[in-house]
């Protein structure tokens, strides 16, 4: 379980996170939903130890983030963070070199699923293809938790469909997946749990199937209440 408790962060006098708490369970897909600037990316970066927080605590499987924890949690940022001069095969080799939990067979499967060419230069990839390769780099690690920042944003329809299929496969089974998005459309049927963020605070936190069963509301219905109400 990823446990985020009361994390706070200020950036240039602006309160980016004003006491955010939620949990992302292992074996579930949790979506952190919010409009642009709600603080979603900052939460993911804070979980990964990529930006310091001013207060609160973050635990991953009961442990604080540390270099050793990077063997149990993978982050797929909103851009492909590999030097553009590398070719895809160099990128895969980089991962194999540095990550003990890298799974080359799975990387292979994903490369062919997304039809990626190993000889291509990373800097030349289109946005959709770059995100696919980004998913390969994150998903081919044998880790318990995977964090994704806006995997669908700015990408063509067919790439989005292909990426969404990742969430229906064994790639997400038994893992905890935490995904941020500002447009839920692509994955509304796929997420187990939704956490709605607004101006650095959690405004709703619910189980999606339970919400449909007990209140007959879709995730978008709840979003509409929160962000338009």
């Amino acid at each position: 379980m990823i446990e985020v408790s009361d994390i706070r962060k200020k950036y240039r006098r602006k309160q980016v996170l004003g006491g955010v708490s939620f949990q992302a369970q292992k074996g579930q897909i949790t979506s952190l939903i919010g409009l642009n600037g709600a603080g979603k990316s900052t939460v993911l970066k804070a979980i990964m130890g990529l930006t310091p927080i001013d207060g609160g605590s973050i635990r991953i499987g009961g442990q604080a983030i540390s270099p050793a924890a990077y063997n149990t949690i993978a982050f797929i940022p909103d851009r492909l963070t590999m030097p553009g001069s590398m070719r895809l095969r160099d990128g895969l080799q980089f991962m194999a070199d540095f990550y003990p939990r890298w799974n080359p067979a799975r990387a292979e499967d994903l490369m062919s699923f997304f039809r990626l060419e190993r000889g291509e230069k990373i800097g030349r990839l289109s946005k959709g293809t770059a995100m696919k390769f980004n998913l390969v780099l994150g998903m081919a690690q044998d880790v318990d938790y995977v964090l994704m920042d806006e995997p669908f944003s700015g990408i063509d329809l067919f790439s989005r469909e292909l990426i969404a299929e990742v969430f229906t496969s064994q790639l997400v089974e038994d893992r905890g997946v935490l995904i941020t998005t500002h447009e839920i459309g692509d994955i509304e049927h796929l997420i187990d749990h939704a956490v709605l963020l607004d101006q650095g605070r959690v405004v709703r936190d619910f189980d999606c199937e339970q919400m449909r069963e007990e209140h007959g509301k879709s995730v978008i219905d709840v979003m509409r209440e929160v962000y338009r109400g």
Partner: peptide
């Protein structure tokens, strides 16, 4: 353009 720092800081 690549923000390679993300990757480097997340090495185990």
């Amino acid at each position: 353009r690549a923000s390679f720092a993300y990757r480097l800081l997340m090495l185990p």
